[in-house]
Design a protein around this nucleic acid. Sequence first.
DNA 1: CTCCAGTGGATAGTGATGCTATCTGCTATC
DNA 2: GATAGCAGATAGCATCACTATCCACTGGAG
Lengths: 212, 212
Amino acid sequence: MRVAELSTATGVTVPTIKYYLREGLLPQGELTSPNQARYGEQHVRRLRLIRALIEVGGLSVARLREVLATLDDHDGEINNLLGTVQFNILPPGDDQADAAGIAEVDRLLERHGWHVSEKHPARQVLAGVITRARQLGMGWLLEVLDPYAVAAEQVAKVDIDLTARQGDREAMSEVVVVGTILGDAMLTALRHMAHEFTSARRFGAESFTDRS
Amino acid sequence: MRVAELSTATGVTVPTIKYYLREGLLPQGELTSPNQARYGEQHVRRLRLIRALIEVGGLSVARLREVLATLDDHDGEINNLLGTVQFNILPPGDDQADAAGIAEVDRLLERHGWHVSEKHPARQVLAGVITRARQLGMGWLLEVLDPYAVAAEQVAKVDIDLTARQGDREAMSEVVVVGTILGDAMLTALRHMAHEFTSARRFGAESFTDRS
DNA sequence: CTCCAGTGGATAGTGATGCTATCTGCTATC
DNA sequence: GATAGCAGATAGCATCACTATCCACTGGAG
């Protein structure tokens, strides 16, 4: 498979493929001569993975490179692979969190009996969101946290069940990456649709109709 | 309140405030002379809203302008305000969706008895994600859709309950914006933390420990 | 009253990001 | 042997979200 075929197979232009090769996101093809290379199915797959993580997950090329490096790292401790992947997916948290926000997160985790690493990026993210909600005078909005946590736990159980069905650790870590990113997108899309439906129920069907 | 005070009150630099004024995100201050203006509490609030939507929600300035314009539009049909706000928050969907993905979304919505507008952006997003999951050879990942939908419906009910408690329609639409954006961030942060906790339960505590 | 830091408004510049275009020498294929 | 395509390298470009500079002017300190 040559680069043009790789391009048509994935819908990614040749210059962009070359860019990803340069950036190390896509492994080099097998060189058959100094200036000819062959690409295989794994390149198609990888390219689709790259596009999914960029376009669905909104990952930057820099962050994507880290995530893919973790994924490709078969030398490191396989033990921590899942955790490392998870830690690298989230951008470094919003630094807006104040002490009250952080404490609120701690209390929430304790209420639900969750053991979460002190350094989990999602902690900072959540604390930052809490801080901002309060600053916006919408502290009462935080009443959603407990029901959200219950829903998140249900969802996470499904996710882990599905991950556990994967045979080898390598496939598992790819599932973690894809499942985390695509899962976020699916969950928020469903939430938004449920909003329309539920609010139509509540406020009467006319609220959300007649949009052009 | 002058621009410097507005700056220290919100942590946003003066040049950035000027930029937001130029872009129409922040309303002009009350001019007391040709080159002196006063700003009030509503400017502080608005600026915090802007930063929250940009930094937490990842909205672009262009999209933010549309969302804020909808929020400020008291002349339009108040009936559709909530829906319009919802429709303007999501970026135009991923165009990767194929017919099978779209059909899958239709079936899902039917299974759950959800009435969702044909044009809801989240439909395209979800269909695109489904298409990509299949392309990545992870079609079985879509087993999560039904439990996710159940969780999303629970969450949405909480959201709408809270929104309904708002007195006037104006406050309500702001709550819709903030609640949608911050809610997405909270829910995904909780999902990620629940992953760590649940996976430690499942695979043994050593999986996610000892990260530096 | 004078002085000057600070201001509103306008215009131009900057750094990061994610590609895109062009060039060169080579090669597979017809 | 012509010609289309290729790898690798370098340079360019559009967008975005600010940031910097300049100007005439003003409010408040001294």
